[in-house]
Design a protein around this nucleic acid. Structure first.
Lengths: 344, 344
DNA sequence: TTGAAAGCGCTAACAG
DNA sequence: CTGTTAGCGCTTTCAA
């Protein structure tokens, strides 16, 4: 059970600790004779030595650790992955990071809980933050000089790298599509709308499309709650209570759509026969449901990959040069929309 | 951007570094005057000092870090969360750990990839491993003396704490239920069956139930692949190709069921009218689908909570005393099963 | 081509 | 009650 350290290896190989360090790290400034290298490797194998990355990062200031902060959808709600979007994103981040020899330090973030913890604390080489809003917390972070990549955030600050999608454009695309199918009264259903948040942008896109088509934005077609299945259910109830005034809905997350559809079905209201739906994300679920969802597709895997790429790039670069990355969107047609023709 | 260290705080407060350390850690062996404590706290606040947990763990041998290893469902397949079960479990683990002041070091594990990396490397206080099989890797781990909790593993080794469910019993319950509904030919659909794996146990439970009822276990009713949506689709195709010989299926994961149902629906075969399904897990998805799934419910949140509880308990205890925890299961009836009456 | 020595930032005896 | 002194396990000048 004795911890074997670099010194033990050194002793075993009959060299000094620093030599062992050199061969282990392939330190480019030092050249090692083939013979010593072999002896060291043999000792490493024999003693089953595994370097302590913790100590390593303490002295070298590189930790091979990436901090990942994922919002808790609701304060006090533990299932940050109740939206499968986060699961898919995290998978992709983890995989990419691992391929590059990095580990992930994962933490949920309750709103307004100081980010510093995860960050400075562990000497992470970089941080990926998903879906945050501008705020004091972020500013604290930036003073520590760790590269930060914001995913899906509209925080306009050149100190953070950014990766996102054309939320507004995607929403407009979705809404236009519905209009193209003959719908005139289109609901908007989303999580909470916050200044500079993703949902705000999507709402704008929705409004734009309506206005372009000469349609009015109707207060009673607006539904906003939390991004989860339960709220989808609730929204369905509200829709029914308000008298089913719309023939279609643009819903800003697949998981919401699923709840909405389920809620409607319980009251014998069918999609797409009674109401058409276009949603957003194209989580793998979107194709699994019945009816499958016509939705705005974003490449979640790519988003994760890019995030890691960006953060590592920034960690290696000495100069901070701001990078912004916007991923493309496209509408995928499935079975949740039908043509609508106004009863004459 | 200068890193502020404990020394800076000490200087600012006019005390020694150790004193600062004492007040920060509330070291019980030392008592600190109220005055010094205040001065130190003030300095901490003023300099915005955040302790470097890395250095802390190097010297104290406690890292407040828990390693979490989640299997990559398929080698080379990056989406470990393609099965929502893992997402839900991780959410729960993360949340519980965070409440206790622990961070998570997350890593996927490709089969046969040495676990040591994540472990010894970072001085984790404990490790949670999900769904692994007996093997050399595990044995390596145990020599390092870090407490390990195995979730959903049938590795019989008193050196590992264990948390799981009655897989066999659950499967039997599911199969019996189907039999009780009049079904006589019942398919078994699962991921790969491995010695001492979860699916093996579930297969045994399935066989037991069949035999109890005097039914024969039919080779052609057996489907085994990978635990993901795609394989569900494939299994559906196989079922059709083999001539739809069964009137019901016990499927060992909700996500598989979803694929299976979808695959059938594409060929106009309906659940539960044409074939009844009982599945396993009761992921939040199970209630979202159409038809909603009759499934064996397990408390995933509790599984995660228990896992960190166990690992932390073990980390604090000096003595290693083996703990095993088996969570209860129950069948939840929804809409994927119907009574079957043999055509006469 | 290798080794000695000085830390990285913090904790933990042990003195005082 | 507080400070001194050694490290934790590794990297990294700098000198040999």
């Amino acid at each position: 059970m004795q911890r074997v350290g670099i010194k033990d290896v050194a002793k075993e190989a009959g060299v000094s600790a620093s030599t062992v360090s050199y061969v282990l790290n392939n330190t480019p400034t030092e050249s090692i004779s083939e013979d010593t290298r072999k002896r060291v490797m043999a000792a490493v194998k024999k003693l089953r030595y595994v370097p302590n990355l913790n100590a390593r990062s303490l002295s070298s200031r590189r930790s091979n650790l990436i901090g990942v902060l994922i919002p808790q959808t609701e304060p006090g709600k533990e299932f940050m992955f109740s939206n499968p979007f986060y699961g898919e994103l995290l998978s992709s981040i983890e995989y990419t990071a691992r391929q590059q020899g990095y580990h992930l330090l994962l933490s949920g973030t309750q709103e307004d809980h100081c980010y510093l913890n995860i960050a400075q604390n562990r000497d992470v080489d970089g941080i990926i933050i998903v879906g945050t809003y501008p705020g004091e917390n972020l500013n604290e972070l930036k003073r520590m000089g760790v590269p930060i990549v914001l995913v899906d955030s509209y925080v306009m600050d050149k100190d953070f790298h950014t990766i996102g999608i054309e939320d507004k454009e995607g929403a407009r695309m979705a809404t236009r599509y519905l209009i193209g199918k003959g719908h005139r009264r289109i609901a908007f259903i989303s999580g909470s709308i916050r200044e500079n948040g993703v949902n705000m942008k999507r709402y704008q896109g929705y409004c734009d499309a309506l206005q372009e088509a000469g349609l009015t934005v109707d207060e009673s077609a607006f539904y906003s709650g939390t991004v989860d299945y339960e709220y989808g259910l609730t929204a369905a109830q509200q829709y029914l209570d308000r008298g089913r005034q719309q023939t279609a809905a643009f819903i800003t997350a697949d998981v919401l759509s699923m709840g909405f559809i389920k809620g409607l079905r319980e009251q014998k209201v069918c999609v797409p026969d009674d109401i058409s739906i276009v949603s957003f994300d194209d989580v793998y679920l979107a194709n699994m449901t019945y009816p499958s969802l016509t939705t705005v597709h974003q490449d979640i895997g790519e988003k994760g990959r890019k995030a890691v790429e960006l953060v590592l790039e920034a960690a290696k670069a000495k100069e901070h040069r701001y990078t912004e990355c916007i991923l493309p969107l496209r509408l995928v047609e499935r079975d949740s929309v039908r043509e609508w023709r106004e009863p004459t």
